[in-house]
Design a protein around this nucleic acid. Structure first.
Lengths: 231, 231
DNA sequence: ACTTAAATGTCGCTG
DNA sequence: CAGCGACGTTTAAGT
């Protein structure tokens, strides 16, 4: 990993064109040929970048470029798409390299998968007498998060999201259409369960006869206090 | 901007929990209190991070932590959500600071908006005798990219994407349902136009009587050669 | 401020 | 390898 702080301008040519005017910035050159151009602000997304696999090459500026104050031209080209990032280096303020090796990687816990596990354990949150039938029930158009039986024994398809938006309702609608064509399990009703349901999504869901259930993650996790944590 | 290369372990507690075991990494501390934890690989996304606005504080390790080899504890807390990132610093390999100032920012050209402008100018790409009627036609559920008239004078709703996927077809379907309820413009047919259309999206679209058109961006831009560039 | 759609998305899994 | 959905999505645009 090489880290350079330099006055530079940057041009990207690929799926779109983009330009960064001359300013001091941080350039991170990774071992896989990728490069990140960061400023002192914004969030984690760089101002501009080239993702791996890429090849880096440095070259001398031509006369015009040298006259414009450019001391070095870096070209980073994507190995597959041919997209290229061109850094026109004016003045290097700092240039350091470090051997980092391969990172052991991140351990995560607590996303939609966890919500699904919790709801499967606490399926009665959908209503008295509800029973879990299947998790990740595979269909040709994708897995249905949960299939349950209501107190009358009818099938209920549950789509779980952290944030319930219109896409999720569309997804559940497609599952319901498909499941209701299967005489072994039809009729199937739908439940759209999320930590938070956007008004548009709620309107669309209810318009299609899909029940909306807001899940309280902290409360569900509290009840699940006996359950082992990942770390 | 402070850039530190250090052996460290990292813990994040917020919407999820995550842990990074001890390894050498690059830590970028930005002026707005945010921090990025990068390794020598992956793409532009850091292994872990805290987005602004955040507050940074460094503290001494307690006896147990010191015995474990920790020399410094950094706590970065989000000002609004309270999410926190804790960096346990073992050994600092490099520590530099630079004053970068506010970045002038990125200038972009060539995304979906540009495709829409080009198609509006070259509406005959949809068929002989086609005429542009409206762009960004507002409806209660969002703007229809383009409304055109075909050679017979019938209304055509066009949804434009860079990459045509299933949700784009769903979106156009919703518009068509709505538009076809309006007797002033019904009947309305649909065209799904994109640089690239995924097979599943094409199948769904054609199943619903929506025509798929693949747009050649480079060719369209070539024809538009007289048009002024952004830079 | 809030909501919605796009992204050079990136990442991870499953077929 | 392609396809598909999730993401601590982030980000930009519009109301």
């Amino acid at each position: 990993m090489r880290i350079v702080v330099a006055h530079c301008s940057v041009d990207y040519a690929g799926r779109l064109s983009a330009h960064l005017p001359l300013a001091p910035r941080v350039l991170m050159l990774k071992a896989d040929g990728s490069i990140l151009v960061h400023s002192d602000g914004g969030s984690y997304k760089p101002l501009n970048w080239m993702s791996p696999p890429a090849v880096f090459s440095a070259s001398e500026p031509d006369q015009d470029q040298a006259d414009a104050g450019i001391t070095e031209i870096w070209t980073v080209t994507h190995k597959k798409t041919g997209d290229s990032l061109i850094v026109s280096v004016h003045e290097i303020l700092s240039d350091t390299s470090h051997e980092l090796g391969v990172d052991p990687g991140l351990v995560k816990d607590g996303v939609e998968a966890h919500l699904q596990v919790l709801l499967a354990e606490q399926i009665e949150r959908l209503g008295d007498g509800y029973e879990l039938w299947r998790r990740e029930y595979m269909t040709p158009i994708g897995p249905v998060d949960i299939l349950a039986r209501d107190e009358a024994g009818a099938t209920v398809a549950v789509e779980i999201k952290r944030r319930g938006e219109i896409d999720g309702v569309e997804q559940l609608t497609r599952y319901l259409e498909l499941l209701n064509r299967d005489p072994r399990i039809a009729p199937v009703t739908g439940v759209f369960a999320a930590q938070e349901i956007k008004p548009q999504a709620r309107t669309l869901a209810e318009d299609r006869g899909i029940r909306c259930v807001v899940l309280d993650y902290d409360e569900m996790r509290g009840i699940d206090s006996g359950h082992a944590r990942l770390f």
